[in-house]
Design a protein around this nucleic acid. Structure first.
Lengths: 334, 334
DNA sequence: CTGTTAGCGCATTCAA
DNA sequence: TTGAATGCGCTAACAG
């Protein structure tokens, strides 16, 4: 139905080869004919078919963004949305399209994500929002399809990853609290299946030891990354260690829940208990007191993952681990 | 590089026609050969190329999701993410892929979004996050490419739309406040370029008149949809009308900002001033006091837009206007 | 500089 | 029931 290269050739009175050459900027076309071809193409509203081009060139300029549990990832948008924007924009910069995939969809169709990508001849995949114990993990790692994980530290011949240096991030947070004079610092962590949880715990412990403090197991509580998780864990923590003067939460949502619970318990933030979150979600700026937090460069993470993938695709670079720095955003809660 | 239909045919000792038939479930293939073909295909790990199929079938099973200012849409994720999930999931249900587009990207490349879609032979587009005064608007409306707008009430031969009934939503909110005995009800609205703003204002006014109250222009303030917008507008409102006992905000973010400002001004929520928001973002449940709000069915909006598009594509249905209901979520702020 | 030919992977006539 | 031939729209050798 749409205008094809043939139509342009016929109207312009040249062969399709010439049209093709004119469009692809080959210099073996006289300026005259090129201009005429381009003129005709414009009049006819010709748009070269990427489908046909993909077939003959054997490259689709298309990569998938695989999101785990896209539709049911609670609170996930605070993190995923910006990453997605970074991925999309940088992909566009390279002339690539982004197709959204979801593990749940694949599950429904009973096809592996790798089959999904193969059918579409995708050139690579970027994976995010996945847990280490996700059944899709091994598939990602073992596949020959070039892939980059976000917050998913798997390194294999065809799979690299990008993540924030969570150890450093957590150390920043704890050092900040130490500098404020706190000694009994609690840590409310996310679920242990998340890689970030392991690293943040590590950073927390390291910063304490660095300051010559002993790591008290009673000061660490695991929960989920959401507001409610933060609330519940705060109660648990204060039961086990009523003398905490500061709490480091593994997410801003948790911290917000925690502050709320502390208030209920008659503790004032930051006077009685100082609070630090993680993520720098937009609302952290507006809760009372405004939340001190560790900021990840979400957009940059998406961007970096694309850069790595493009390196693998176009320059045969080997996949690697890319750690981005994070920075403290100090506000009123500490 | 990947396994093609030829490989399968060769190994199975049949023609490519037979392989094609076997794979597409034609019944003019003996059970024997079909099983053999399928077996060989599995061993060879054959995946039919969607690219080649798209070319010959002249249909890509691909639709674009056009997001306006994807990378710079502040606070947009609260709304867009869920809609996107609905679009993606429902598209998958129909066997369609979703490619993400952004107006900013198109702008950078200086190609119209319609050219972008044509090159890729997309079958349709779903548009969201766009303002009525966006330059891309006319393109969407005039294009022959089937499209569905979300919160974008344009109806043309090839363009339908889905939106929440914002008039009803606003009426719900105001009625709720009226029922609580409030008479002086302020309305802090979003920017006037957003269609939703017009409708919500309409609903606000209608509900008041319905109750026999006069609409006082001093009670309405326009601002942006963000926290800061809510804060500033609240100050303006209370200057113009210090006697308000309730405020209806056009977004939850604004309401959160408003509550904060009210607190600063020594007003207690809901005791001195009751507050209703709009959107039902996840954090509304956790601010103090928990926010009463109007909930949009975001996921369903995405889903509905796909259903409409599929109707247009597959059953030649005419584009239409689809209004979804919203419902009150009553919490502590009223 | 321009046109002819071949083929990318697949579905679909039409014969056998 | 199976296979040979044709073409989807385009690019890339090659020849003129």
């Amino acid at each position: 139905m749409p205008v094809t290269i043939k139509d342009v050739a016929r109207v312009a009175g040249v062969s399709i080869t010439t049209v093709s050459h004119a469009f692809n900027g080959h210099d073996d076309v006289s300026a005259d004919t090129r201009d005429r071809v381009l003129q005709v193409a414009k009049e006819l509203n010709y748009r070269p078919s990427h489908v046909a081009r993909s077939l003959v060139l054997q490259q689709t300029h298309n990569v998938g963004l695989l999101v785990s549990d896209f539709n049911t990832n609670p609170g996930g948008h605070h993190f995923l949305f910006d990453v997605m924007a970074g991925v999309h924009d940088q992909l566009a910069e390279f002339g690539y399209d982004m197709t959204l995939l979801s593990t749940t969809t694949a599950m429904q169709r009973l096809v592996s994500y790798i089959d999904f990508c193969t059918e579409r001849r995708m050139e690579g995949v970027i994976v995010m929002g996945m847990r280490m114990n996700d059944p899709y993990m091994r598939e990602v790692a073992d596949a020959k399809l070039p892939s980059v994980g976000i917050d998913l530290p798997i390194l294999s011949p065809h799979c690299g990853y990008v993540m924030t240096d969570n150890i450093q991030g957590a150390m920043h947070a704890v050092r900040h609290l130490l500098a404020k004079g706190h000694q009994r610092i609690g840590f409310i962590n996310g679920h242990a299946e998340a890689v970030v949880s392991v690293d943040r715990l590590h950073g927390y412990q390291t910063a304490l030891r660095e300051a010559g403090l002993k790591v008290d197991p009673d000061l660490v509580v695991h929960s989920n990354f959401l507001v409610q998780g933060g609330e519940e864990a705060t109660t648990v923590l204060l039961t086990k260690a009523p003398d905490v003067t500061a709490i480091f939460y593994a997410s801003d949502l948790m911290a917000i829940g925690g502050m709320r619970r502390l208030l209920r318990m008659g503790k004032r933030v930051p006077h009685d208990v100082a609070v630090v979150g993680y993520d720098n979600i937009d609302l952290g700026e507006w809760v009372v007191p405004a939340l001190t937090t560790v900021a990840q460069r979400r957009y940059d993470m998406g961007k970096a993952s694309v850069d790595m993938l493009m390196g693998m695709l176009r320059r045969q670079e080997r996949p690697r681990a890319c750690l981005l720095t994070s920075e403290m955003v100090v506000r009123q809660s500490t």
